[in-house]
Amino acid sequence: MVADLLTWIFLLAGSVLGITGAWGLMTFPDFYARVHAVSIADTLCAACFILGLVFQAGWSLVTIKLLIVLTLLWITSPTSSHALVRAAYRAGLRAMTHGNKQSSEVQS
């Protein structure tokens, strides 16, 4: 019973965080800002989903597999977003910063 309740809480939290990330992906004005929205969805949202499923699975091999999925996601997602941002930066896409409100592309 307690496990079911915890599953509810974690899955709902994960869903809300995921939709938040997606909404940020839609509304943020700039590519570099969108990366942050996606990083919410990749870190805490994924962790909430996996934890919710762990409470459903109990102690078995399935739990270990779930934790392996989570570890993989937490290692690969910063790596791929770093690679993405670095590629955009190398290609000359400049970030919109505080002072200048226009995201300007500089030919490098």
Partner: peptide, 26 residues
């Protein structure tokens, strides 16, 4: 260090040179 910066939402590291890291924060 760079991976921890990127893993934390709100900050992302984009370039590493010798002993400095270029960070974008929201």
């Amino acid at each position: 260090y760079a991976n921890s910066i990127t893993l934390t939402p709100g900050t992302v590291s984009f370039d590493i040179k010798d002993d400095g890291v270029l960070v974008h924060a929201i």
